[in-house]
Amino acid sequence: MKLQLNIQPLESWINVKNQPLLISGPCSAETEDQLLSTAHLLAATGKVSVLRAGIWKPRTRPGEFEGIGSIGLEWLKRAKAETGLPTAVEVANAKHVQEALAAGVDILWIGARSTVNPFTVQEIADALQGVDIPVLVKNPVNPDLQLWVGALERINKAGITKLGAIHRGFSSFEKSAFRNEPMWELAIQLKTLCPELPIINDPSHICGNRELIPYISQKALDLDMQGLMIESHLDPSIAWTDAKQQVTPAALAEMVSKFTLRQAESKNEEFADKLADLRKDIDKIDDLVLQKLAERMSITQKIGEFKRDNKVTILQVNRWDEIMSKRTAFAKALKLDVNFTEKFLELVHGESIRRQTEIMNAGKVDAGIAAEAHADVK
Protein backbone atom coordinates (compact mmCIF):
# COMPACT_ATOMS: atom_id res chain seq x y z
CA MET A 1 0.00 0.00 0.00
CA LYS A 2 1.42 3.35 -1.07
CA LEU A 3 1.85 6.26 1.33
CA GLN A 4 -0.37 9.15 0.30
CA LEU A 5 1.46 12.43 0.86
CA ASN A 6 0.73 15.78 -0.76
CA ILE A 7 4.25 16.99 -1.52
CA GLN A 8 6.08 19.17 -4.00
CA PRO A 9 9.14 18.02 -5.99
CA LEU A 10 12.48 18.74 -4.35
CA GLU A 11 13.55 20.94 -7.27
CA SER A 12 10.73 23.36 -6.50
CA TRP A 13 12.04 24.26 -3.05
CA ILE A 14 15.80 23.59 -2.95
CA ASN A 15 18.39 24.78 -5.43
CA VAL A 16 19.68 21.53 -6.91
CA LYS A 17 21.95 22.96 -9.60
CA ASN A 18 24.88 21.58 -7.61
CA GLN A 19 25.15 17.79 -7.84
CA PRO A 20 24.77 16.06 -5.56
CA LEU A 21 22.51 18.24 -3.45
CA LEU A 22 24.65 19.07 -0.43
CA ILE A 23 23.54 20.48 2.92
CA SER A 24 26.55 21.26 5.07
CA GLY A 25 27.78 23.24 8.05
CA PRO A 26 28.93 22.72 11.62
CA CYS A 27 27.27 20.29 13.97
CA SER A 28 26.90 23.21 16.38
CA ALA A 29 27.03 26.96 15.95
CA GLU A 30 29.68 27.71 18.59
CA THR A 31 30.75 31.31 18.02
CA GLU A 32 29.85 33.90 15.45
CA ASP A 33 33.34 33.82 13.96
CA GLN A 34 33.37 30.02 13.74
CA LEU A 35 30.01 29.92 11.95
CA LEU A 36 30.71 32.80 9.56
CA SER A 37 34.19 31.57 8.65
CA THR A 38 32.93 28.04 8.00
CA ALA A 39 30.02 29.37 5.95
CA HIS A 40 32.29 31.46 3.72
CA LEU A 41 34.62 28.51 3.11
CA LEU A 42 31.70 26.24 2.26
CA ALA A 43 30.21 28.81 -0.14
CA ALA A 44 33.60 29.20 -1.83
CA THR A 45 33.64 25.49 -2.74
CA GLY A 46 30.69 26.03 -5.09
CA LYS A 47 29.33 22.64 -4.07
CA VAL A 48 27.10 23.44 -1.09
CA SER A 49 23.43 24.29 -1.61
CA VAL A 50 22.30 24.87 1.99
CA LEU A 51 24.10 25.95 5.17
CA ARG A 52 23.14 23.95 8.25
CA ALA A 53 24.03 24.54 11.91
CA GLY A 54 22.84 23.16 15.23
CA ILE A 55 21.36 25.96 17.34
CA TRP A 56 19.63 23.85 19.99
CA LYS A 57 21.39 20.55 20.67
CA PRO A 58 19.43 17.76 22.39
CA ARG A 59 22.19 15.95 24.30
CA THR A 60 22.06 12.51 25.83
CA ARG A 61 23.19 13.73 29.25
CA PRO A 62 22.88 17.12 30.99
CA GLY A 63 26.03 19.15 31.40
CA GLU A 64 27.16 18.67 27.81
CA PHE A 65 27.03 21.60 25.37
CA GLU A 66 23.36 21.95 24.42
CA GLY A 67 23.68 24.61 21.77
CA ILE A 68 24.34 28.32 21.79
CA GLY A 69 20.62 29.04 21.63
CA SER A 70 18.64 31.79 19.95
CA ILE A 71 21.62 34.12 19.47
CA GLY A 72 22.94 31.63 16.91
CA LEU A 73 19.97 32.41 14.68
CA GLU A 74 21.28 35.95 14.25
CA TRP A 75 24.65 34.53 13.20
CA LEU A 76 22.91 32.31 10.66
CA LYS A 77 21.01 35.33 9.31
CA ARG A 78 24.30 37.15 8.82
CA ALA A 79 25.93 34.10 7.20
CA LYS A 80 23.04 33.90 4.74
CA ALA A 81 23.33 37.62 3.91
CA GLU A 82 27.08 37.37 3.32
CA THR A 83 27.23 34.07 1.40
CA GLY A 84 23.82 33.81 -0.26
CA LEU A 85 23.36 30.30 1.12
CA PRO A 86 19.89 29.42 2.45
CA THR A 87 19.94 28.14 6.01
CA ALA A 88 18.62 25.09 7.87
CA VAL A 89 18.27 24.30 11.58
CA GLU A 90 16.82 21.54 13.76
CA VAL A 91 13.70 22.32 15.78
CA ALA A 92 12.45 20.26 18.70
CA ASN A 93 9.42 22.18 19.97
CA ALA A 94 6.98 24.96 19.09
CA LYS A 95 9.20 27.69 20.55
CA HIS A 96 12.08 26.62 18.31
CA VAL A 97 9.79 26.76 15.29
CA GLN A 98 8.57 30.26 16.14
CA GLU A 99 12.07 31.63 16.73
CA ALA A 100 13.50 30.01 13.59
CA LEU A 101 10.68 31.39 11.45
CA ALA A 102 11.09 34.85 12.96
CA ALA A 103 14.81 34.73 12.12
CA GLY A 104 14.12 33.88 8.49
CA VAL A 105 15.52 30.33 8.52
CA ASP A 106 14.79 28.71 5.16
CA ILE A 107 14.54 25.00 6.03
CA LEU A 108 13.67 23.19 9.26
CA TRP A 109 14.47 19.64 10.18
CA ILE A 110 13.13 17.38 12.92
CA GLY A 111 15.77 15.31 14.69
CA ALA A 112 15.79 11.59 15.43
CA ARG A 113 15.11 12.11 19.14
CA SER A 114 12.00 14.14 18.27
CA THR A 115 10.68 11.84 15.53
CA VAL A 116 10.49 9.01 18.03
CA ASN A 117 7.88 10.94 20.08
CA PRO A 118 4.50 11.56 18.36
CA PHE A 119 3.61 14.18 20.98
CA THR A 120 6.71 16.22 20.07
CA VAL A 121 6.08 15.85 16.35
CA GLN A 122 2.45 16.94 16.76
CA GLU A 123 3.52 20.00 18.75
CA ILE A 124 5.87 20.98 15.93
CA ALA A 125 3.16 20.26 13.34
CA ASP A 126 0.70 22.49 15.19
CA ALA A 127 3.27 25.31 15.23
CA LEU A 128 3.69 24.93 11.46
CA GLN A 129 -0.01 25.33 10.62
CA GLY A 130 -0.39 27.90 7.84
CA VAL A 131 3.38 28.16 7.25
CA ASP A 132 4.99 27.55 3.86
CA ILE A 133 8.48 26.24 4.64
CA PRO A 134 10.43 23.10 3.72
CA VAL A 135 10.65 20.52 6.51
CA LEU A 136 12.92 17.48 6.62
CA VAL A 137 12.14 14.61 9.00
CA LYS A 138 14.97 12.41 10.27
CA ASN A 139 14.30 8.75 10.92
CA PRO A 140 13.60 7.89 14.57
CA VAL A 141 16.46 6.66 16.75
CA ASN A 142 15.05 3.13 16.80
CA PRO A 143 14.37 1.15 13.61
CA ASP A 144 10.61 1.74 13.38
CA LEU A 145 9.35 2.58 9.90
CA GLN A 146 5.84 3.37 11.15
CA LEU A 147 7.15 6.08 13.50
CA TRP A 148 9.02 7.66 10.60
CA VAL A 149 5.95 7.48 8.37
CA GLY A 150 3.72 8.82 11.14
CA ALA A 151 5.94 11.85 11.65
CA LEU A 152 5.91 12.62 7.92
CA GLU A 153 2.12 12.31 7.85
CA ARG A 154 1.68 14.63 10.84
CA ILE A 155 3.83 17.33 9.26
CA ASN A 156 2.12 16.90 5.89
CA LYS A 157 -1.35 17.17 7.48
CA ALA A 158 -0.28 20.50 8.97
CA GLY A 159 -0.11 21.81 5.40
CA ILE A 160 3.62 21.36 4.77
CA THR A 161 4.01 20.20 1.16
CA LYS A 162 7.74 20.94 0.84
CA LEU A 163 8.55 17.76 2.68
CA GLY A 164 11.50 15.38 2.73
CA ALA A 165 13.09 12.69 4.86
CA ILE A 166 16.61 12.33 6.24
CA HIS A 167 18.15 8.89 6.63
CA ARG A 168 20.66 9.08 9.51
CA GLY A 169 20.82 5.46 10.62
CA PHE A 170 19.44 3.65 13.66
CA SER A 171 20.65 2.78 17.13
CA SER A 172 21.65 -0.82 17.70
CA PHE A 173 22.94 -2.86 20.62
CA GLU A 174 25.37 -4.56 18.27
CA LYS A 175 28.76 -2.88 18.04
CA SER A 176 30.01 -2.15 14.54
CA ALA A 177 32.13 0.30 12.61
CA PHE A 178 29.17 2.71 12.47
CA ARG A 179 27.80 5.08 15.07
CA ASN A 180 24.30 4.27 13.81
CA GLU A 181 23.53 1.23 11.69
CA PRO A 182 22.45 2.33 8.18
CA MET A 183 19.72 -0.32 7.86
CA TRP A 184 19.32 0.68 4.23
CA GLU A 185 16.31 -1.58 3.88
CA LEU A 186 14.17 0.80 5.97
CA ALA A 187 15.04 3.79 3.79
CA ILE A 188 14.31 1.66 0.72
CA GLN A 189 10.95 0.63 2.19
CA LEU A 190 10.08 4.28 2.77
CA LYS A 191 11.06 5.11 -0.81
CA THR A 192 8.92 2.23 -2.04
CA LEU A 193 5.93 3.47 -0.02
CA CYS A 194 6.29 6.99 -1.41
CA PRO A 195 8.53 7.17 -4.51
CA GLU A 196 8.09 10.94 -4.87
CA LEU A 197 9.36 11.63 -1.33
CA PRO A 198 12.89 13.11 -1.38
CA ILE A 199 15.27 11.22 0.92
CA ILE A 200 18.54 12.84 1.94
CA ASN A 201 21.30 10.79 3.55
CA ASP A 202 23.18 11.92 6.66
CA PRO A 203 26.49 10.02 6.51
CA SER A 204 27.96 12.04 9.38
CA HIS A 205 25.59 10.52 11.94
CA ILE A 206 25.65 7.08 10.37
CA CYS A 207 29.44 6.92 10.44
CA GLY A 208 30.38 8.81 13.57
CA ASN A 209 33.83 9.27 12.03
CA ARG A 210 34.97 11.15 8.97
CA GLU A 211 36.89 8.24 7.43
CA LEU A 212 33.74 6.30 6.49
CA ILE A 213 31.75 9.27 5.16
CA PRO A 214 32.85 8.89 1.50
CA TYR A 215 31.83 5.22 1.44
CA ILE A 216 28.37 5.79 2.95
CA SER A 217 27.79 8.89 0.80
CA GLN A 218 28.53 7.02 -2.42
CA LYS A 219 26.29 4.14 -1.42
CA ALA A 220 23.46 6.57 -0.64
CA LEU A 221 23.83 8.19 -4.06
CA ASP A 222 23.92 4.76 -5.72
CA LEU A 223 20.59 4.02 -3.98
CA ASP A 224 19.10 7.12 -5.65
CA MET A 225 18.92 9.29 -2.55
CA GLN A 226 18.45 12.93 -3.50
CA GLY A 227 21.26 14.49 -1.52
CA LEU A 228 23.59 14.46 1.47
CA MET A 229 23.78 16.30 4.78
CA ILE A 230 27.44 16.33 5.84
CA GLU A 231 28.75 18.20 8.87
CA SER A 232 31.64 20.56 8.22
CA HIS A 233 33.69 22.66 10.64
CA LEU A 234 36.44 25.22 10.20
CA ASP A 235 38.66 23.09 12.48
CA PRO A 236 37.01 19.79 13.52
CA SER A 237 39.75 19.05 16.05
CA ILE A 238 38.40 21.77 18.35
CA ALA A 239 34.67 21.31 17.66
CA TRP A 240 32.46 21.46 20.75
CA THR A 241 30.26 18.57 19.56
CA ASP A 242 30.81 15.48 17.41
CA ALA A 243 34.37 16.43 16.45
CA LYS A 244 35.20 13.04 14.92
CA GLN A 245 32.42 13.13 12.33
CA GLN A 246 33.01 16.63 10.96
CA VAL A 247 35.22 17.49 7.98
CA THR A 248 36.85 20.72 6.87
CA PRO A 249 35.26 22.58 3.94
CA ALA A 250 38.32 21.76 1.81
CA ALA A 251 38.08 18.05 2.62
CA LEU A 252 34.36 18.16 1.86
CA ALA A 253 34.95 19.70 -1.56
CA GLU A 254 37.59 17.10 -2.42
CA MET A 255 35.32 14.29 -1.25
CA VAL A 256 32.34 15.47 -3.29
CA SER A 257 34.44 15.88 -6.43
CA LYS A 258 35.26 12.17 -6.31
CA PHE A 259 31.67 10.93 -6.09
CA THR A 260 30.32 8.98 -9.06
CA LEU A 261 26.88 10.28 -10.03
CA ARG A 262 24.46 7.88 -11.68
CA GLN A 263 21.03 8.35 -13.19
CA ALA A 264 17.92 6.52 -12.00
CA GLU A 265 17.04 5.71 -15.61
CA SER A 266 18.84 5.57 -18.96
CA LYS A 267 17.47 6.79 -22.30
CA ASN A 268 19.75 4.38 -24.17
CA GLU A 269 17.44 1.92 -25.98
CA GLU A 270 20.04 -0.84 -26.14
CA PHE A 271 20.57 -0.57 -22.38
CA ALA A 272 16.81 -0.61 -21.75
CA ASP A 273 16.31 -3.72 -23.89
CA LYS A 274 19.18 -5.60 -22.27
CA LEU A 275 17.99 -4.63 -18.79
CA ALA A 276 14.47 -5.81 -19.61
CA ASP A 277 15.82 -9.21 -20.74
CA LEU A 278 17.89 -9.60 -17.59
CA ARG A 279 14.90 -8.67 -15.43
CA LYS A 280 12.83 -11.35 -17.18
CA ASP A 281 15.49 -13.87 -16.20
CA ILE A 282 15.30 -12.62 -12.61
CA ASP A 283 11.50 -12.96 -12.64
CA LYS A 284 11.72 -16.58 -13.80
CA ILE A 285 14.25 -17.45 -11.10
CA ASP A 286 12.17 -15.69 -8.43
CA ASP A 287 9.15 -17.76 -9.45
CA LEU A 288 11.20 -20.95 -9.15
CA VAL A 289 12.56 -19.92 -5.76
CA LEU A 290 9.03 -19.29 -4.46
CA GLN A 291 7.80 -22.60 -5.84
CA LYS A 292 10.64 -24.45 -4.12
CA LEU A 293 9.96 -22.60 -0.87
CA ALA A 294 6.32 -23.68 -1.08
CA GLU A 295 7.43 -27.29 -1.62
CA ARG A 296 9.77 -27.01 1.36
CA MET A 297 6.98 -25.69 3.59
CA SER A 298 4.74 -28.54 2.49
CA ILE A 299 7.37 -31.02 3.67
CA THR A 300 7.76 -28.98 6.87
CA GLN A 301 4.03 -29.41 7.45
CA LYS A 302 4.35 -33.20 7.16
CA ILE A 303 7.32 -33.18 9.54
CA GLY A 304 5.26 -31.19 12.04
CA GLU A 305 2.44 -33.73 11.88
CA PHE A 306 4.94 -36.59 12.24
CA LYS A 307 6.54 -34.95 15.29
CA ARG A 308 3.13 -34.29 16.83
CA ASP A 309 2.01 -37.88 16.43
CA ASN A 310 5.24 -39.16 17.95
CA LYS A 311 5.43 -36.53 20.72
CA VAL A 312 8.73 -35.07 19.53
CA THR A 313 9.70 -31.43 20.17
CA ILE A 314 9.58 -28.92 17.36
CA LEU A 315 13.07 -27.53 17.85
CA GLN A 316 15.98 -29.91 17.51
CA VAL A 317 19.18 -27.94 17.94
CA ASN A 318 21.51 -30.55 16.43
CA ARG A 319 19.51 -30.59 13.19
CA TRP A 320 19.48 -26.77 13.03
CA ASP A 321 23.25 -26.64 13.57
CA GLU A 322 23.71 -29.19 10.79
CA ILE A 323 21.59 -27.15 8.38
CA MET A 324 23.46 -23.92 9.13
CA SER A 325 26.85 -25.57 8.79
CA LYS A 326 26.15 -27.38 5.52
CA ARG A 327 24.14 -24.64 3.84
CA THR A 328 26.56 -21.82 4.66
CA ALA A 329 29.48 -23.89 3.39
CA PHE A 330 27.57 -24.60 0.17
CA ALA A 331 26.60 -20.93 -0.16
CA LYS A 332 30.23 -19.90 0.27
CA ALA A 333 31.23 -22.25 -2.54
CA LEU A 334 28.56 -20.62 -4.69
CA LYS A 335 30.04 -17.16 -3.95
CA LEU A 336 27.05 -16.12 -1.86
CA ASP A 337 27.55 -13.79 1.08
CA VAL A 338 27.57 -15.77 4.33
CA ASN A 339 25.66 -13.12 6.30
CA PHE A 340 22.94 -13.06 3.64
CA THR A 341 22.73 -16.87 3.68
CA GLU A 342 22.45 -17.00 7.46
CA LYS A 343 19.67 -14.38 7.52
CA PHE A 344 17.81 -16.20 4.74
CA LEU A 345 18.05 -19.55 6.52
CA GLU A 346 16.93 -17.98 9.80
CA LEU A 347 13.83 -16.56 8.07
CA VAL A 348 12.98 -19.91 6.50
CA HIS A 349 13.61 -21.74 9.76
CA GLY A 350 11.46 -19.23 11.67
CA GLU A 351 8.55 -19.83 9.27
CA SER A 352 9.02 -23.60 9.62
CA ILE A 353 8.88 -23.30 13.41
CA ARG A 354 5.75 -21.15 13.18
CA ARG A 355 3.95 -23.66 10.97
CA GLN A 356 4.92 -26.65 13.11
CA THR A 357 3.83 -24.77 16.24
CA GLU A 358 0.38 -24.27 14.71
CA ILE A 359 0.15 -27.98 13.97
CA MET A 360 1.29 -28.98 17.46
CA ASN A 361 -1.16 -26.66 19.23
CA ALA A 362 -4.15 -26.70 16.88
CA GLY A 363 -6.29 -28.81 19.20
CA LYS A 364 -5.23 -26.94 22.30
CA VAL A 365 -6.02 -23.59 20.72
CA ASP A 366 -9.46 -24.77 19.66
CA ALA A 367 -10.09 -26.20 23.15
CA GLY A 368 -8.96 -22.96 24.75
CA ILE A 369 -11.31 -20.92 22.60
CA ALA A 370 -14.19 -23.26 23.41
CA ALA A 371 -13.43 -23.06 27.15
CA GLU A 372 -13.43 -19.26 27.05
CA ALA A 373 -16.74 -19.25 25.17
CA HIS A 374 -18.24 -21.65 27.71
CA ALA A 375 -17.04 -19.43 30.58
CA ASP A 376 -18.62 -16.37 28.92
CA VAL A 377 -21.94 -18.21 28.63
CA LYS A 378 -21.87 -19.04 32.31
Rank of each mutant, 00 (worst) to 15 (best):
Ser12Lys: 15
Gly63Pro: 08
Glu196Asp: 14
Asp202Ile: 15
Pro198His: 05
Asn361Ile: 13
Met324Gly: 02
Lys274Ala: 07
Ala253Trp: 06
Lys378Phe: 12
Arg61Thr: 09
Gln34Ala: 07
Ala251Phe: 02
Gln4Val: 11
Pro143Asp: 02
Glu181Lys: 08
Asp286His: 10
His233Met: 14
Gly350Met: 12
Leu41Ile: 01
Leu288Gly: 05
Glu269Ser: 01
Thr248Lys: 03
Ile188Tyr: 02
Ala81Asn: 09
Asn180Thr: 12
Lys258Asp: 11
Asp309Lys: 14
Trp109Lys: 01
Val97Tyr: 04
Ser37Lys: 14
Glu265Trp: 12
Val131Cys: 11
Ile188Cys: 03
Asp132Pro: 03
Leu347Gln: 04
Gln246Leu: 05
Ile216Phe: 11
Asn310Gln: 13
Phe330Gln: 12
Asn209Cys: 09
Lys307Pro: 01
Val50Lys: 02
Met1Arg: 11
Asn180Phe: 15
Met297Thr: 04
Ala371Tyr: 06
Arg168Asn: 06
Val247Tyr: 02
His96Thr: 12
Thr357Val: 04
Gly25Ala: 13
Gly350Pro: 01
Glu11Met: 06
Asp376Gly: 00
Leu347Gly: 00
Ala44Leu: 06
Ser24Leu: 08
Asn268Val: 07
Pro9Thr: 10
Phe173Gly: 09
Lys280Arg: 13
Ser298Met: 05
Val338Asn: 02
Gly67Asp: 01
Gln301Tyr: 10
Lys47Tyr: 04
Asn339Thr: 06
Asn139Ser: 10
Gln19Trp: 01
Ala243Lys: 12
Lys292Phe: 03
Ile282Val: 12
Lys267Phe: 04
Ala151Asp: 05
Leu42Gly: 05
Met229Cys: 15
Leu212Ile: 09
Glu74Gly: 14
Lys332Glu: 12
Asp33Pro: 01
Ala39Cys: 07
Leu73Met: 07
Ala370His: 03
His40Met: 06
Met225Leu: 15
Thr192Asp: 09
Lys332Thr: 15
Cys207Leu: 11
His349Asn: 01
Val105Arg: 03
Pro134Gly: 08
Glu74Ser: 13
Thr192Cys: 03
Gln245Ala: 01
Ser171Val: 13
Lys274Val: 15
Val137Met: 00
Thr341Pro: 02
Gly84Pro: 08
Pro203Cys: 10
Ala112Asn: 11
Leu35Gly: 08
Lys326Ala: 09
Lys280Asp: 06
Leu128His: 00
Glu358Ile: 11
Phe344Leu: 12
Asp235Val: 13
Pro214His: 08
Gln189Asp: 14
Glu342Thr: 12
Leu186Ile: 15
Lys2Asn: 15
Ile285Tyr: 09
Phe306Thr: 14
Trp13Val: 09
Leu347Asp: 11
Val137Trp: 01
Asp309Phe: 08
Val97Trp: 09
Lys219Thr: 12
Gln226Trp: 05
Leu147Ser: 11
Asp337Thr: 10
Phe170Ser: 00
Glu322Thr: 14
